[in-house]
Amino acid sequence: MIALDDMDRAILRALEADATLSAGALGRRLGLSQPACWRRIRRLEEEGVIAGRRLVLDHAAAGFGVTVFLGVKLATKGRVSLEDFERAVTAIPEVQVVQHVLGLFDYRLKVRARDIADFERVLRRRIMTLPGLGQVEANVLLSEERLPGPLG
């Protein structure tokens, strides 16, 4: 873990808001030269603080209007390895996130579908056939608010 100063945090906040900012534009915004800003960004990338940059999609506009969170409990952990379950579930394109969690469920899945009928198809044909699957609980996302991260 590296020590972050105020300028590092300002860079991270700015890139979190708009990852397309060039080092020159970011430097002008923060009062740094382009080379100094570029060196800081590169150091943050090399140290793993910046792990990558992503495109944020409007899933509803792209035709995927339903998001469902599934709590999944494996039937018997001894019969099917966690790796077998994870390999099978990550092969399902509609499953966007797979989280191994501690608590009532073993896994939490984020599933995107075009509509409820599409989700039902994915659930019946793909998810319910996963190896070792036990209990499944679904929660349909009604709305989502983006909150500032820990640096915001």
Rank of each mutant, 00 (worst) to 15 (best):
F64V: 07
N139F: 15
G71R: 10
T76K: 13
S22K: 14
R124G: 02
I116R: 09
L142R: 12
V95K: 09
D106Q: 08
A10E: 12
E144L: 05
R9C: 10
G134F: 05
L21D: 02
L74P: 03
L4P: 09
Y107P: 06
L26A: 01
D118F: 07
L30D: 00
A23E: 01
S81L: 04
I127N: 08
T90P: 05
A91Q: 12
F64C: 02
S22Q: 09
T76Q: 12
A25T: 10
P93I: 00
A17T: 10
F85C: 03
E94Y: 03
L142F: 13
V72N: 08
Q99V: 03
V136T: 15
A61R: 14
R40M: 05
L74W: 09
R40Y: 07
A75D: 14
L26D: 01
R79V: 14
A19F: 06
V136N: 07
A113H: 03
A14G: 06
L57C: 09
I11G: 01
L123Y: 15
A25K: 14
E137K: 07
V89N: 06
G78L: 12
G52P: 05
E86G: 02
A60G: 12
R87P: 00
G24H: 03
G78I: 04
N139D: 10
F85N: 01
R29M: 11
E144Q: 13
I41H: 00
S33A: 11
L130M: 13
V122P: 00
R124P: 00
F105A: 11
A60V: 13
T67N: 02
G63K: 07
G149M: 01
G132D: 08
R42I: 06
R54W: 05
R125I: 03
E137A: 12
V98Y: 04
V136W: 03
L30Q: 07
